[in-house]
Design a protein around this nucleic acid. Sequence first.
DNA 1: CGCAGGTCTTCAGGTCGGTGTCAGGTTGGG
DNA 2: CCCAACCTGACACCGACCTGAAGACCTGCG
Lengths: 218, 218
Amino acid sequence: MRILLVEDDGLLGAAVRDSIAAEGHAVDWARRLGEAEECRAVARYNVILLDLMLPDGRGLDFLKRLRLAGETMPVIILTARDQVSDRIAGLNAGADDYLVKPFDLSELSARIGAVTRRAAGQAAPVVTFGDVTIQLAERAITRSGKALALTAREWAVLEALLGRPSGLVSKSEIEERLYDLDAEVESNTIEVYIARLRKKIGHARIVTERGLGYRLVR
Amino acid sequence: MRILLVEDDGLLGAAVRDSIAAEGHAVDWARRLGEAEECRAVARYNVILLDLMLPDGRGLDFLKRLRLAGETMPVIILTARDQVSDRIAGLNAGADDYLVKPFDLSELSARIGAVTRRAAGQAAPVVTFGDVTIQLAERAITRSGKALALTAREWAVLEALLGRPSGLVSKSEIEERLYDLDAEVESNTIEVYIARLRKKIGHARIVTERGLGYRLVR
DNA sequence: CGCAGGTCTTCAGGTCGGTGTCAGGTTGGG
DNA sequence: CCCAACCTGACACCGACCTGAAGACCTGCG
């Protein structure tokens, strides 16, 4: 496994590098964002460990650039900030995990394991369907540049459809995702939400297959 | 998205349930491991939120049973324990994330997002017959690259034929798969659907064996 | 508390296409 | 040649689906 460590603190950086190397992984250590960009251009990484406060810029911006470029590798943020709002911002920018300094090196390696176990099959945090761009992480969606406003239920239906990229999702499947065991629904609610979604993202984006379900098309 | 919350604390549980429901997700709330097992037997979940200290057992054991049973859905642990060794044990038992109480509800939802984004996209089984490619799970079928549209009944017949790869399937066998006991059919329906399937996937793909049944060939 | 603005769900009327049936043609075995 | 089994185009019906509208519900605000 190949890991990119972005960290300006010499002591902590060396400790992390050694600990990861001791587990048999390859580590490239960038001390500034500039270096990190160079590394990224040269090599592909399985995991990126990212400090947020760096001499030449904010780690979050690096992360956002990464995700906008379509990169999907797991990113674990390492930082002294432990404000909840910071952690949320990090996760919403597309980070996969968050460790607050000081952290235990064995916990770091456990988290690297957890995060890469998931990385086998990835859904891109940014999905594009025709003129519609969806940022799942931030619950933001635009159509030809203009922001759309989806309600909670509309998001839920959209997520259900996205869960099977270009695959078929049955109405009952959507229903199961929307409603818990107690609250059973006896109506055409799903059809209504499909109609509303179509009105917002374009009718052709969702095709009906009678008796089977719905399918997202690009 | 459908979420199973396993938490015995009434106050925290209610808060978590409401916060998640407000985002349009369906929540089933189990207060004990026994309930959690029941829920799991009945419904499929996209995420499980798991408290570790429960009246009738340890959450970690539940998690281990889950993973042993081959379940791969993301699990986020919620607990008051913040010992590093506990967190490592949780992650190594197959948890995908870990939140220490008290936690912010918006951070929880950010983490649910991060964890499910990773979870999508396992490879679906693909069957190929000549120039026809079939993705059973996604109900997608192409002939020499072009997508075909099959109706519900056509899929059912095709599945019946695929159920016995390159084997013989009798007409009555197909009939039994298509229609439940009550619905009696008195006509040549199966023949009609065989004809329709042939027109779409190529006549040579299905051969008739007089008096016996049909056979898929590649 | 009442109101406004929004969301969720239900309902009803209309459309449309899959489904099952039939009839006439074709094939293959005895 | 004859008959049974099978093929296939055509067609009417019914239920799945669509959609506008309106009632139920929630939430924040004055």
